[in-house]
Write a protein that binds this DNA or RNA. Sequence first.
DNA 1: CTTGAAAGTACGTGGGC
DNA 2: GCCCACGTACTTTCAAG
Lengths: 156, 156
Amino acid sequence: MAQSPKIDDTDRRILRELRRDGRLSNAKLAEQVGLSATPCWNRVRALEESGVIEGYAALLNQKALGLPDTVLIEVTLERHDDDMLYRFGKALAELPEVMEAYLLTGEYDYLIKVAVAGTQGYEEFLRHKLYKLPGLRHSRSTFVLRTLKRETSVEP
Amino acid sequence: MAQSPKIDDTDRRILRELRRDGRLSNAKLAEQVGLSATPCWNRVRALEESGVIEGYAALLNQKALGLPDTVLIEVTLERHDDDMLYRFGKALAELPEVMEAYLLTGEYDYLIKVAVAGTQGYEEFLRHKLYKLPGLRHSRSTFVLRTLKRETSVEP
DNA sequence: CTTGAAAGTACGTGGGC
DNA sequence: GCCCACGTACTTTCAAG
């Protein structure tokens, strides 16, 4: 996790390939980007060690895991002191249904993305999870009708 | 991409490990979940073929790639006929800065998550990209102050 | 589910352009 | 920087028991 000095064009091509397929073997990756195995492997390693590559993950199908629906919820707190923001944010992040959670500018709110099973799962999440968190003032939910794009990372 | 019939406890453990580390070797994975190599590999393959595992990806550091900031933008269209919704959504998804794009319930809007470099990059995105899309009526942006959680998939 | 065996891969080392 | 070649240990992948 040192510095990440210069990322050249070849690095970007490596990143592009590994973002598409995180299990590419070094041999195939080298072929794709037009290097031989050794320098390619050295670059991948450097990208990992400098933290440009943060890790690798299997991408799982939400539907197959029984949580087909996605809800975006804007959350407003009663108070906005540092302690409150920290503790509430931590509690949000610990809920397994919450896939993403962001602290936002503006009125010091959160936006969270939640995976649920239908309106019933949504109601259960609200009543048994979100509404039990102390300090919540208000929430406003929107169901996702269609996911048009969902990238794991920015485009290299 | 056939059906995904029953996912048992062992499958879930496999998925949990592979979500954490998508490059785990089958040998180590088998050890982690308490199987020997072959049955473990058969399960992984079945999970891949049934679409439960959608793929594997390297996770890239947004900051290292020069787009350290994230903006959430609510987008409202002028008209909401099917053709418009489809074409606008497609145009949104094609912008490389857009990492996620959702079509929402309510007033038939989009929410997009965009990676930019500071307020300057944000302004450029608005002027040169978003505002050039035909049919846009209104947009409302919020900067992300802190990312509290960002999972690639739902928890298995 | 286990064992086994062939092919491929990772990862290092050392030489050379 | 890059390529090439070699080497060991590990992994994948597929039999067959």
